[in-house]
Write a protein that binds this DNA or RNA. Structure first.
Length: 891
RNA sequence: GCAGGGUUAGCUCAGUGGUAGAGCGGCUGUUUUACACACAGUUGGUCGGGGGUUCAAAUCCCUCACCCUGUACCA
């Protein structure tokens, strides 16, 4: 007998197999293979990031897809890598600098040294997440790991820029952008989170220059008044028509400014008059441009007031300046009223501070291949799952705006643009720069620096991180790899980056690789805490997956999370679920251990199969179908659930309990052989079906149960999937169905017997005997399996059985069932029990009769449904008769 | 404002027109030689409210409420 611990200990086993897989190159993709290709590129996590629950879900799904594809005989590339994450990483290192004494900034260090520091930091702390992904068991081709700034990828980014520039799609210009005053950089619209916040709406009196009265203006930003260049009213507003083209006195930095007419002003909002501050508001900028108004800037890049002519405010932080300017206005008697007000404020995703709309010189991209990208999703060439995300995508694509791709950062891809030294100053002030300037020889744009670098000055800015990740699906591959594995098969990612990443990759794919980047996009759920909040570091509500792996094993974590991952809605994460994953692993381990304890079957004997053997094999065959079906529909929770319920309920609770005696009783050698063969078949198939989800424990058991040895030492992860069609080959369908019916009757009858025992308060292990007045032929085989399942010492069939008065009885698929208790039972109680059952039965019968008496039902319902109802009714009537007989026997 | 999703047992969730389900929890019993990370039994639901379609509605339609998530904004 094999000595094995009673409980499964995952950590040793998991790390052992992770090592083995890596050492034997199991995950390596061969572009020269003639097998069908299957490929996924990983959504590259931030190089400085650590694994969170979202990653576990995301990469768990990708691993299932990749491993299953290998089993199906495909050549699988799962391409891993990390993202340099410009802002996040730079901010991380700047934080370190600020901790020095005295605190330093990147400017103290200088560009080159600072970038070197980030690289050093990346070498030291980066890539933790890669180790964590390996610990999760991810079967990525680690030899092909890419980094968005490595020596292969970086030139591709520059090449992309250069090509788009030449096409005239990239230009530089003075535009209103989202400015982050803490990080000192522009942000794309997608990086700004509109957040409802409580603020105040101030109504301010602007005096007419001619002294004939005042104009009330409502604003939330009195600190920008010094930059007002006009007040606008709606031309259709009769209240103000007579004022248009008059002037009012700007209340701070006093000067006359015109009253203009513009349709953008809402008549019904506020006072109906809008102050125009082109330098500090997006809409005002447009109105200003349209009306050719001056642009006055009074807030600097730090978010401080820059207005020397207002010394009281000059240099103040913007929010302090707001209070101060209200104070000043109030002292002049210019505040009409102050109201509480809720409006949406744009918050920087990165620094969490309100962004400042600011006029600045930035690089922009007009997206390429927008139409193709739209069409691809609309016509199903690229499938989105769940499908509703296609609508979100279409909505964004229809309102698509030019992408601000420059960031005032040092860590990242530096913009590959050089200015002619003698013209640099002039060029950098130009309102618009594009390929026409390059053709004039003033600009150089290219992957390599110009050949005469001394004559050129490179642009200071870096590119938005997403400008590198949008080419990830093809720029990570060399030509050979691309010809085999591009376009990729599936992309698995979160819906939160549908615009940041997915949409942009589609456009880049069409533009640069001539084809869609992937055939399917699966959007995962978002993992939330039990209160429904998004998991975040600041809330501290995100469990560390590594802790969970330590506690429950990577397999347990994967299983538990996948089981609650619905397709389409968010997950509320509950650690209990992960514990169940661990319990399941333990169950599987013990079932395998049980098999190992039985040894091998005698060679010289014919196996004798019973209905329960055939039944479990038929259920296994069905499981094969459920698994392929669920995976084909990307329904990972139903895949997991099907695996769970087959193994725990069908195999362990029913089948194993019904066959245990075959293994114990030495007179049942033929049955034992059948049982061992069946156990081996089920386990072999089952481990393969489960392997994509729980790769470690299945690999371990594959080995210890001897399946690896039988297949020439092939590890499970490289073994082809056993076929459902290889099961029950020698039986026709009707024989299988007959066996299943027989097995179902056995299990159902055993349940009745257990219920009966419980009803009479007999402990599970109380030794009892059952007697049947059979309604069908009962073999000794079936009776002994029944006794085992029911926890009885014996069961017998006796057509002439005369029960003592009051003997507990039940109806079963096998006929009347008796539990003789030697007169221990109260006749009255038994009579009551049967009467209660009879009442229940009568209710069901009348309900069913009413239904069948309804012509609407009989005529319109599908024939099969009506038939079922009739059969049910018939069955109940028979049972009713039996119960009546039982009741009479008691009297 | 607009769009999408959700509301089913105490909890987490399945369930696309035909007798309301699973796991966990609760309660009762069992250390029966694979597993107490277990086994057996059992208790929990006007399927968010209202209306409609239908012989039949958790399921389809309308409406209301509440909760999410996007997205657009008026100072």
């Amino acid at each position: 007998m094999t000595e094995l611990p009673k409980a499964y200990e995952p950590s040793f086993v998991e790390e052992k197999w992770q090592q083995t897989w890596l050492n034997t190159d199991c995950f390596h993709a061969d572009p020269q293979s003639d097998k069908q290709a299957y490929s996924i590129v990983i959504p590259p996590p931030n190089v400085t990031g650590v694994l969170h629950m979202g990653h576990v879900l995301n990469n768990g799904i990708q691993d299932i897809l990749a491993r299953r594809a290998r089993q199906e005989g495909k050549e699988v590339l799962w391409l891993p890598g990390t993202d340099h994450a410009g802002i996040a990483t730079q901010a991380r290192v700047e934080k370190e600098l600020s901790k020095l004494s005295p605190p330093q900034t990147r400017h103290d260090v200088g560009r080159e040294d600072f970038i070197q520091m980030v690289w050093d930091w990346k070498e030291k702390h980066g890539g933790i997440i890669i180790k964590q992904l390996k610990r999760l068991g991810c079967s990525c081709d680690w030899d092909r790991e890419r980094f968005t700034m490595d020596e292969v990828f970086a030139p591709e980014v520059a090449r992309t820029f250069a090509q788009l520039f030449e096409e005239g799609l990239i230009y530089r210009g003075l535009r209103m952008v989202n400015w982050d005053p803490v990080l000192h950089t522009a942000l794309s619209d997608e990086e700004v989170i509109m957040t409802p916040s409580k603020s105040k709406l101030y109504t301010i009196r602007y005096q007419l220059s001619d002294g004939s009265g005042q104009l009330l203006v409502a604003t939330t930003r009195p600190e920008t008044i010094m930059a007002d260049v006009a007040v606008a009213v709606n031309p259709a507003d009769p209240r103000f028509a007579h004022l248009i083209s008059k002037t009012v006195i700007r209340p701070l930095c006093e000067a006359p400014i015109p009253i203009i007419a513009d349709e953008h002003v809402e008549i019904d909002f506020g006072t109906g008059a809008l102050k125009i501050t082109p330098a500090h508001d997006r809409a005002d900028f447009e109105i200003g441009t349209k009306n050719k108004l001056e642009i006055i800037t009074v807030i600097d890049s730090n978010g401080h007031i820059d207005c020397p002519s207002m010394p009281e405010l000059h240099g103040m932080e913007r929010f302090a300046a707001r209070d101060k300017s209200v104070e000043i206005l109030d002292s002049k008697g210019l505040i009409e009223k102050v109201e509480e007000y809720e409006n949406n404020v744009g918050i920087s995703e990165r620094s969490q501070v309100p962004i400042e709309p600011r006029l600045s010189m930035q690089w922009f991209l007009k997206y390429p291949c927008v139409e193709e990208a739209k069409q691809a999703v609309a016509n199903g060439d690229i499938t989105f799952r769940p499908a509703r995300w296609a609508k979100t995508y279409a909505h964004w694509m229809n309102g698509i705006q030019d992408w601000c791709i420059s960031r005032q950062l040092w860590w990242g891809h530096r913009i590959p643009v050089w200015y002619r030294k003698d013209k640099a100053a002039e060029l950098q002030e130009a309102a618009t720069l594009d390929s026409s300037n390059a053709s004039a020889g003033d600009l150089y744009v290219g992957v390599e620096p110009p050949s005469d670098p001394e004559n050129w000055v490179q642009d200071e800015d870096a590119l938005d991180t997403w400008f590198s990740s949008w080419i990830w699906p093809f720029a990570t591959m060399d030509d050979e790899c691309r010809s085999k594995f591009y376009p990729t098969s599936d992309l698995v990612t979160g819906p939160d980056i549908i615009f940041f990443w997915v949409a942009r990759m589609i456009m880049a794919g069409y533009r640069f690789a001539g084809e869609k980047p992937f055939a399917n996009v699966f959007f995962t759920s978002i993992v939330r805490d039990l209160q429904g909040r998004k998991m975040s570091k600041s809330l501290g509500n995100s469990p560390d997956p590594l802790d969970l792996i330590a506690k429950y094993g990577a397999d347990g974590l994967r299983f538990g999370l996948m089981r609650i991952a619905p397709a389409g809605t968010d997950i509320k994460f509950d650690e209990k679920q992960i514990e169940e994953g661990k319990n399941f692993a333990n169950k599987l381990y013990n079932a395998a251990r049980f098999r190992m304890m039985q040894g091998e079957a005698a060679a010289n004997i014919e196996p004798q199969f019973s209905a329960v053997h055939i039944d479990v094999l038929a259920k296994l065959q069905k499981l094969h179908l459920q698994v392929s079906d669920s995976l084909a529909k990307y329904e990972f929770n139903s895949y997991t659930q099907a695996l769970y319920s087959f193994f725990w309920n069908e195999y362990c609770s029913l089948f194993l309990e019904a066959v245990k005696n075959d293994l114990r009783d030495e007179n049942l050698a033929a049955q034992k052989k059948a049982t061992l063969i069946t156990m081996d078949t089920v386990l072999e198939h089952y481990l393969a079906l489960l392997a994509p989800l729980m790769p470690h424990i299945t690999e371990e058991l594959w080995q210890s149960l001897g399946f690896a040895a039988q297949h020439g030492s092939t590890p499970l992860m490289l073994s082809p999937l056993p076929l459902a069609s290889s099961l029950l080959t020698e039986m026709d369908q009707s024989a299988i169905s007959a066996a299943q019916t027989k097995a179902a009757a056995l299990y159902e009858t055993a349940n009745r017997a257990r219920n009966l025992k419980a009803e009479y308060n007999l402990a599970t292990n109380r030794k009892v005997s059952f007697v049947f007045k059979p309604s069908c032929e009962l073999s000794d085989d079936m009776l002994s399996r029944f006794a085992l399942l029911a926890g009885a010492t014996s069961a017998s069939a006796d057509a002439n059985y005369e029960p003592a008065k009051g003997t507990p009885t039940a109806l079963s698929a096998w006929g009347e069932l008796f539990l003789p208790l030697d007169g221990l039972v109260d006749v009255e109680a038994e009579r009551n029990r049967i009467s209660r059952e009879l009442n229940k039965m009568s209710e069901e019968i009348s309900k069913s009769q009413a239904k069948l008496g309804n012509s609407g039902f009989v005529d319109r319902a599908p024939a099969i449904v009506v038939e079922q109802e009739r059969a049910r009714l018939e069955e109940w009537i028979v049972k009713q008769g039996q119960l009546k007989t039982m009741l009479e026997a008691l009297n």
